[in-house]
Design a protein around this nucleic acid. Structure first.
Length: 546
RNA sequence: AGCGGGGUGGGGAAGUCAGGUCAUCCCGCGGGGCUCAUAACCCCGAGAUCGGUGGUUCAAAUCCACCCCCCGCUACCA
C-alpha cells in the first residue's frame, strides 16, 4: 500500500459581483474537485478550500447600482454561490469568504509581520480621483476619447478602438465611468510589496516546481525575464480589509493581495470549525505537504510569483505551490463570455436546463488544457448523446438487462480463467492509464480513458455475443462474459466518481452494492464482484437531449 | 507596440519540447454486420500535401528564418 500524503487542494476564488459562468467553473472549482475527489479515494489526506472574493471597487460600484451596500450584496451572492457549488457537487471542505473574521485577522497579521521584515515600504503617488464620487478611480473606471485615434469610448488603460495602451489622464475629455464627472489628480500615499527583491529565489522556485502547466511556467519565466516591479498593497477603497501599517488608516489592502492568502485562512477556519484548531499547521508547515492550485490563465502570475513571493518573504516556512494547473479560456460559441452582452451560460441557469453530471461531463471533456476551447450547444449535444448515452449508458444498460433476464438478476459465477478475458485485461490497462493521467492532472485524458473502457466493453460484448452462447447452450461461457462485463461496469463506476459522482453512484447501486461509491477506495476498481449478488431493477441512466 | 498561446480531413481535439516507428482520437459521412440494448452496439471505407513561403536534414506536423490570421496579457479590472 502506498504511503499517504497531505494535500491542500485549492481553486481560484470567484469574484462575487455576479454568479460565475461555465468558464470560471471548469478553470477552477470543477477541475479542483475532480482531483480532490480522486486523491481522497486514493486514501490521501486532503483539505479542499476556496471562497468568495468580495472586496474592491467593482463590488462597491455594483452595490451602488443595485441600491444596496457592499456587505449585503456580498452576503447575498456568497450565499447563492455557496449553494450553487453544492448543487454542482463541488466537494469543498471549506468554502469560505474574504469577509470571514479568520481571513481578515490572518491577512492583517501576516502583512504586519511582512512589514516588520522590511518587505513593505510606502511611497507617495498621484492618481485620478472623482470629486463627485469621492473615490480614487482605477484605470478602467475612467473613460474618454482616445488621444491617438479619437475612439470615443476608450477605457483608461487601453483603447478598444486602436488597441493602444493609454495613460488614463491623457484621454480627451476624461470622465468618471460611474458618474460622468471629470476626474482630477490627487496625491495619495500607498504601501508597496518589495517583490523584485525575491527575483532570484522565484526563478529557482519556478524552475524546480514539480508540476506547473506549460502556460504557467512559460508566462512566469517571461515575466521574470522582463523584470518584476513592486506591487502596491493598498487602495483607497472603503470596502476591504483595513491596511495594518503605521500611518495607513483609511486604506484597505488591494483585493488580490489579500484574497490570495485566503487559501491559508480558509484552512485555518476549516480546522477551527472541526475542533482541531492548530491542525492547519500540519499542512501549511509540512514540507512534504503538496499545495495544488487550479486556476484560469489570467491568474497565473498571482499563483506562480506573487503567492510564492509573499510566502517566501514571510520566512515562516509555508509550503509553496507544488502544482499549478492553469487552464486556457473556455469560449462560448467562439466568443468570450460576457456578462454585459449576455454571451455565455451561468452556473445557475445551467442546472435549470440539464442534470449536473451532463454539465460536468461536457465541461471536463472540453477542458481547455492546451489552448482555448469553445463550448457550443452542438458539442454539448454530441457529447451527451453519443458518449454519455450511447457509449456508456447503453453499455451499462445492455449488460444489466441481460443479467436480469438471463440470470434472474443474480451476478453469475464465471469460470476460473475469467481474469484472462480480453475485457478484464483492458480494465487493468485503462485503470492504470487513467490513474497515471490523473496523477499528472491530465483530466481530459483521464476521462477519455474511462470512456474508452466503455467502448472496449461494447466491443467485447459484440464479439462474445452471450445471447448466442445461451442459444447454443453454453451457459458457462455466457456467465463468464457477463461476469467480466459486470466487473468492467464496477470499474467504470469507480473511475467515473471523480468526474460525475452522482451518476457513478447510480451505477454502483445498480450493481447491488450498498455503500456510496465515493466512500470506496480508488483501487476497488480492480477488485472482483461477489457472484450471486442481486442487481437492482434496470433503468436507463441517461436520456438523449433534443 | 511588446510578451505569451494557438492555426492539424466537414466539426471538435491529441501529437510538436527529445525529427523517422505519425498522420491519431471523438463525431459526422458511405457501406456492411448484429439483434442483448435507449434506432443503441460492432466491423470496413472515403476524406488532410498538418496556416503560407523558404531553409536545415538521408528524413520535418515536429528544428531554423520570414510572413499571414485568431485569442489572451501588459502590473490601479479582479
Amino acid at each position: 500500500m502506498k504511503k499517504m500524503s497531505k494535500w491542500i487542494v485549492t481553486c481560484a476564488w470567484p469574484y462575487v459581483n455576479y454568479i460565475p459562468h461555465l468558464g470560471t467553473m471548469i478553470g477552477s472549482a470543477l477541475s479542483a474537485d475532480v482531483i480532490a475527489r480522486y486523491l481522497r479515494m486514493k486514501g490521501e489526506e486532503v483539505v479542499f478550500v476556496s471562497g468568495s472574493d468580495e472586496h474592491g471597487t467593482p463590488i462597491e460600484v455594483e452595490a451602488v447600482r443595485r441600491g444596496t451596500n457592499p456587505k449585503s450584496l456580498c452576503d447575498e451572492n456568497h450565499r447563492k454561490i455557496s449553494e450553487l457549488f453544492k448543487r454542482w457537487n463541488i466537494s469543498f471542505d471549506n468554502y469560505s469568504r474574504t469577509e470571514s473574521e479568520y481571513h481578515k485577522e490572518f491577512v492583517k497579521n501576516f502583512y504586519l509581520r511582512l512589514y516588520g521584515k522590511g518587505f513593505v515600504y510606502e511611497e507617495e503617488v498621484e492618481l485620478p480621483f472623482c470629486p463627485r464620487c469621492q473615490r480614487f478611480l482605477p484605470d478602467r473606471f475612467i473613460s474618454g476619447a482616445c488621444p491617438y485615434c479619437n475612439f470615443e469610448d476608450a477605457r483608461g488603460d487601453q483603447c478598444d478602438g486602436c488597441g493602444r495602451l493609454l495613460e488614463p489622464l491623457k484621454l480627451l475629455q476624461p470622465k468618471c465611468a460611474i458618474c460622468g464627472s471629470k476626474p482630477e489628480v490627487k496625491k495619495t500615499k500607498h504601501w508597496f510589496f518589495d517583490f523584485p527583491k525575491l527575483t532570484e529565489k522565484l526563478k529557482e522556485y519556478i524552475e524546480s516546481a514539480p508540476l506547473l502547466t506549460e502556460n504557467a511556467k512559460n508566462m512566469s519565466l517571461s515575466l521574470l525575464k522582463e523584470g518584476l516591479r513592486a506591487r502596491s498593497l493598498t487602495r483607497d477603497n472603503k470596502w476591504g480589509i483595513e491596511a495594518p501599517f503605521p500611518g495607513s488608516e483609511g486604506k484597505t489592502i488591494y483585493v488580490w493581495m489579500e484574497a490570495i492568502l485566503g487559501y491559508i485562512s480558509a484552512t485555518i477556519e476549516y480546522f477551527a470549525n472541526v475542533g482541531s484548531k492548530d491542525k492547519w499547521r500540519e499542512y501549511w508547515f509540512d514540507k512534504k505537504c503538496r499545495l495544488l492550485c487550479f486556476i484560469g490563465k489570467d491568474n497565473i502570475p498571482f499563483h506562480t510569483l506573487i503567492l510564492p513571493a509573499l510566502l517566501m518573504a514571510s520566512n515562516e516556512g509555508y509550503v509553496l505551490p507544488w502544482g499549478v494547473s492553469a487552464t486556457e479560456y473556455l469560449l462560448f460559441e467562439g466568443q468570450k463570455f460576457s456578462k454585459s452582452r449576455r454571451i455565455g451560460i451561468w452556473i445557475d441557469e445551467a442546472l435549470e436546463m440539464f442534470p449536473v453530471d451532463y454539465w460536468r461531463y461536457v465541461l471536463l471533456s472540453t477542458r481547455p488544457e492546451g489552448r482555448d476551447s469553445s463550448f457550443s450547444w452542438s458539442v454539448f449535444k454530441e457529447l451527451v448523446n453519443t458518449q454519455l448515452n450511447d457509449t456508456l449508458g447503453n453499455f451499462v444498460h445492455r449488460v444489466l438487462t441481460f443479467t436480469s433476464r438471463t440470470f434472474s438478476s443474480l451476478i453469475p459465477a464465471p469460470r476460473s480463467s475469467w481474469v484472462s478475458e480480453e475485457l478484464w485485461v483492458q480494465v487493468l490497462k485503462r485503470f492504470s492509464a487513467c490513474t497515471h493521467n490523473l496523477d499528472n492532472l491530465r483530466i481530459k485524458d483521464a476521462l477519455q480513458e474511462v470512456m474508452n473502457l466503455a467502448r472496449d466493453g461494447n466491443k467485447y460484448l459484440n464479439e462474445q455475443a452471450p445471447w448466442d452462447l445461451i442459444k447454443r447452450g453454453d451457459v458457462e461461457r455466457a456467465s463468464t462474459c457477463i461476469y467480466v462485463c459486470l466487473n468492467a461496469i464496477k470499474s467504470l463506476s469507480i473511475m467515473l466518481t471523480p468526474f460525475i459522482p452522482t451518476t457513478a453512484n447510480e451505477i454502483w447501486k445498480a450493481l447491488g452494492l450498498q455503500s456510496h461509491v465515493w466512500e470506496e477506495s480508488w483501487y476497488e476498481a480492480t477488485k472482483p464482484l461477489e457472484p450471486g449478488t442481486r442487481i437492482l431493477e434496470v433503468k436507463p441512466i441517461f436520456t438523449k437531449i433534443k
